[in-house]
Each structure stands twice: as structure tokens, then as C-alpha cells.
């Protein structure tokens, strides 16, 4: 489907770009190489190299001065010395604060991902099965919060759950004493589910909308109950969508800072917050870098799983 009419001749246009091509050819560059090189160089400098820098600095020690860490390479009488400190990593294992923060981040991320899946799956399925004219509106309603400021949504939620917030005022109408929701782990769970729900719904929807209705009808005709049809057909076929959605929630949730900072209490331990405090409150850059590397190790497997799930979806599309 294209917007071009194949039968009318293309409108005459001045060759505005031929100069560009000649100039490129003159310096021995093909357009193709440039197209690849520009983003590749940018990503190398501003994404890959920084990760290497983080690793390097995680092997230094904090010191007073600028920059606030010991140099990796020192030059003494003509001999270059490389000094590596493993203290930061040893501290990650020996200090119970870090261990507890890691375990608690993983626990919070896992549980909230599961809750998001339980809420998001029926929503995605309902949208995929909705009549055509409804579907776009519903999809738009999912996408709109995704575009709306993350910070503001967390803030909106905090106004909702406060001691004298909307929920407690509503409960008060029935004479129920106010619940303490803010500054608890519960608030963090609600916050993650609330803010990441669109990330779960969209990949699930993309998968479920392609589900062949004939399979479901065949199953029903053969006498299977809806629950059975769902468990033996819909659920297995939507596996790539489930994996993609879960990873899109789990990975950022592990490193979440804003939600525990605004909704969680002082006892809510999350690794993103620990990293933030090491950096901003303690100005211990090497320690923060070591925390980042350790966090990276936790998310690397989920990132690969996500990549594989997305590749599988794309291959399926190409196959069709």
C-alpha cells in the first residue's frame, strides 16, 4: 500500500543532491559507509566507551581532588604503572547493605513484573479482541500514559496514596480508618506496576493481535472450554510477547531510582538508590561504578532474553 500513483510519471525535480554525491565520491567515501559510520561512531563513543570507563573507574579508589578517584595509570620515572584496586568489589560482597540491596531489588522487580503481567495480559487480550473501531482508541489510551512524564505519573500516584489522599478519603466515606500506603514497599510495587504497565501491554498486544482466530474457533468446536483453549493455545503462542513484556518491565525496574525515592520508605532498599547515594551523597565515584557494573551483570541475561524474543517475533513476521 503506497501513497504514490504508479501510473503518473515522477514529477521533475532539480538534482539538488547530486552535488553531495560528487563531493562524497571525491573524498573516497561511499554513501553506504557514511550511513553506517555516523551512528556507529556516535554509539561507540557515547555508549560503549562509557561502559568501559565505568569498569575502569570501578577499579580505582576514592580520593580527594579532581577527579575524585585515583588514576589507573601512573608514570613514575618513565615506567607506566597500572594500579588496580579490587576493594570496591570486595566491599560489595562483604558489606551486608549491598547484598541486601541487590536481593531486595531483584525481589521487588520480580514480584512487580509478575503483578504487571497478571494485570497487563487481560488488558492486552481485551484490546486485541476488541471490535476494530474500539481497538485504536483503547491502544491510544495505553500509549498516552507512556508519553506522559514518568516523574509526573509517580507524583500523581503519591498524591493518590497519601495519608489524606483520594483513596483514604474514599475509604473514610465508609468509616474505614486511613491506610498507611506511602513510604512502604507496597507503594513501590504499586508504583512500578503503574508506571510500567504500558511496557507490558504493548508487546503483548502486538503478539496477541496476530493470533489466528480460527485456532480458537477450532478448539471451541472440538468442545474445549474457554479456559482450556486459553491454556493450551493462546498462552503458549503468546510466549514471545510475554517474555518481551516481562523483560521490558523487569530490567528497568531493577535499576529504578525515582519510584523508591518518592514512594518508598527509608527501609526500601533498591540498588539504583544505593548507586545514587554513593555518587551524590558520598561522592564515592569508584564505589558507584562498581555498583553499576554489578547491576549490569544482573541485567545482562534478561537483556539477551529480550533480544532473542524480539528476534523471534521479527523472524515470524518475515516468514509470513
Amino acid at each position: 500500500m503506497s501513497t504514490f500513483d504508479a501510473h503518473s510519471p515522477p514529477p521533475p525535480r532539480p538534482r539538488a543532491w547530486s552535488g553531495v554525491e560528487r563531493a562524497l565520491a571525491a573524498v573516497g567515501l561511499s554513501g553506504k559507509a557514511l550511513v553506517i559510520a555516523a551512528p556507529a561512531i556516535w554509539l561507540t563513543i557515547f555508549f560503549l566507551v562509557p561502559l568501559a570507563v565505568v569498569f575502569g573507574i570501578s577499579l580505582t579508589m576514592k580520593q580527594f581532588g579532581r577527579p575524585p578517584y585515583t588514576p589507573l595509570l601512573t608514570n613514575e620515572d618513565g615506567t607506566v604503572q597500572l594500579t588496580l584496586h579490587l576493594n570496591n568489589y570486595l566491599r560489595l560482597f562483604s558489606d551486608s547493605l549491598y547484598v541486601a540491596a541487590y536481593l531486595s531489588s531483584i525481589k521487588i522487580a520480580l514480584i512487580s513484573t509478575a503483578i504487571t503481567l497478571l494485570i497487563g495480559y487481560p488488558m492486552a487480550y481485551a484490546i486485541a479482541r476488541a471490535p476494530d473501531r474500539w481497538r485504536n482508541i483503547l491502544l491510544m489510551l495505553v500509549i498516552l500514559p507512556f508519553w506522559t512524564s514518568f516523574l509526573l505519573r509517580v507524583y500523581a500516584l503519591s498524591g493518590f496514596m497519601r495519608g489524606n489522599g483520594v483513596i483514604n478519603q474514599f475509604l473514610g466515606l465508609f468509616g474505614i480508618p486511613p491506610l498507611v500506603m506511602m513510604q512502604t514497599d507496597f507503594a513501590v510495587y504499586v508504583g512500578i506496576v503503574y508506571t510500567y504497565l504500558p511496557f507490558m501491554i504493548l508487546p503483548l498486544y502486538t503478539n496477541l493481535v496476530k493470533l489466528d482466530g480460527a485456532l480458537l474457533e477450532a478448539s471451541a468446536d472440538l468442545g474445549a472450554r474457554p479456559v482450556r483453549t486459553f491454556l493450551s493455545i493462546t498462552l503458549p503462542l503468546s510466549r514471545p510477547g510475554i517474555i518481551a513484556g516481562c523483560m521490558l518491565v523487569f530490567i528497568p525496574a531493577i535499576g529504578e531510582f525515582v519510584i523508591p525515592a518518592l514512594l518508598g520508605g527509608p527501609s526500601t532498599l533498591m540498588i539504583g538508590r544505593v548507586l545514587w547515594d554513593e555518587f551524590f551523597a558520598n561522592t564515592n565515584w569508584p564505589r558507584a561504578a562498581a555498583v553499576a557494573i554489578a547491576m549490569l551483570i544482573v541485567v545482562v541475561v534478561p537483556i539477551m532474553l529480550l533480544q532473542r524474543a524480539q528476534d523471534a517475533e521479527q523472524d515470524k513476521e518475515r516468514g509470513n
Binding site: E256, L275, I303
Partner: peptide
């Protein structure tokens, strides 16, 4: 290239921020 360009989509913000600052 494909992996590097999609990684920032899911990379926790604190890691991206810290690594660029360093």
C-alpha cells in the same frame, strides 16, 4: 550495531547517567 542501538532502551538510567558522566 543492532545490539548497541537497542541496549539504551532498557539500560537502567542510573547506569547510563553514571557512565556518561565518568
Amino acid at each position: 550495531l543492532a545490539g548497541t542501538v537497542s541496549a539504551p532502551l532498557v539500560m537502567p538510567d542510573v547506569i547510563t547517567g553514571l557512565s556518561l558522566l565518568l
